[in-house]
Design a protein around this nucleic acid. Structure first.
Lengths: 198, 198
DNA sequence: ATTATTTATTGACAAATGTCAACAGCGTTT
DNA sequence: AAACGCTGTTGACATTTGTCAATAAATAAT
């Protein structure tokens, strides 16, 4: 059994690194987050539902994806210490266009949108922290866009190796392929080409 | 000759819509922004330089792009009322990996990173506004990512027509092609295919 | 108005990737 | 140990897109 406080520690460290937070805010956060455990393959969010929670992924691996026709297109892969939401849905509290599920057993701490708004009201200074965090995630997205704009599979994969590989060890290749927006077959061939060169 | 106050009005309207702002903050903003006029083809930011300004594009059209080999890859197209920065560079005040230049004569209002920090210090409540704005731009990026992940040129172009066309009228096709991450030739062919079907 | 320059269209061909299918490797279940 | 399911690899082929080149159309310059 996990205590919320212990699980949240890495998040609190991240927040304090931005700017120290008051005891009261820290307590409010600890009291508002709830621990959730989900099994591998469990679904955290289903396309069409409103993303009412923000999760802190204390441990595990998640994947978000769109259903296009019969295919699933991975939009993001999220690992330990990630803050997890479906952005469009959470920010505007409208139905999500993507689903999120667990690639491994996960331990999370969640807070609802409403509870978060209460915290913002009581602790307006918290907007500073989340502004910086949002900026950081925003910038990560720019990098993703940059990767997807690469012309061919090799460039994408090399960029991936340089920038994401550390986070992405032990992830099934088919999800990496989807992350790079190529088929598993093409990724497999790209990898074998590169290993022959080297 | 333009007055800062008049030019900033659409920005102020946007901010007030999020939450009313104090007279003092409004005045601080008006006094911190400086009007800039740039001619078509002028360069606002050059790859390698630190993005020290945040611009509000009061009128005109801008394009950001990466130089890859001999080619320019358009990352964003920004039109009237857009807030313009090079995210990675501005947020962290490190050298930019992209350039920004004017596709048309533009009227802008700019504020430096340092001046903006002063405003945040004096008016911490302003973090609330910019958090929401950053969230919105973040979500726009997610949509861009979704578009780029579409399998073929037709899907991308159709998605573009539904979601961006209004903003993008009168933009040279070659930039739209670059925005969709396809060549101008492919875009031209895609358009002619679609017009024959219809 | 006329020229010059840039942009868009079209064709022919090459290159890259997707699709479909067979099979190998691996771990899980029974 | 055998059967099963899932993932990854490899091959053959179809499809899509990129590349290069020629030309037309549209813009800008003189």
């Amino acid at each position: 059994m996990h205590h919320t406080k212990t699980l949240l520690e890495p998040l609190l460290v991240m927040l304090r690194a931005i700017e120290p937070i008051s005891e009261a805010l820290e307590l409010a956060l600890i009291n508002s987050f709830v621990v959730v455990e989900v099994q591998k393959n469990a679904m955290l969010l289903k396309e069409g539902d409103v993303c009412k929670n923000l999760w802190f992924l204390a441990n595990g691996l998640l994947r978000s994806y769109h259903n296009i026709g019969e295919k699933e297109i991975t939009s993001r892969i999220m690992f330990t210490s990630h803050i997890v939401i479906s952005p469009g849905s959470f920010f505007t509290q409208t139905p999500a266009t993507e689903s999120i599920d667990a690639l491994a057993n996960c331990t999370l701490a969640k807070i609802t949108f409403d509870q978060l708004q209460i915290i913002y009201q009581k602790f307006p200074e918290f907007n500073y922290h989340t502004r910086l965090i949002t900026e950081q995630y925003f910038y990560n997205n720019e990098q993703r866009l940059y990767m997807l704009r690469k012309h061919d599979a090799i460039s994408k994969y090399l960029y991936f190796l340089e920038n994401y590989e550390n986070f992405m060890r032990q992830i099934p290749q088919k999800y990496i392929a989807s992350f790079l927006n190529i088929t598993p077959e093409t990724l497999s061939r790209t990898r074998s080409k590169l290993s022959k060169i080297k």
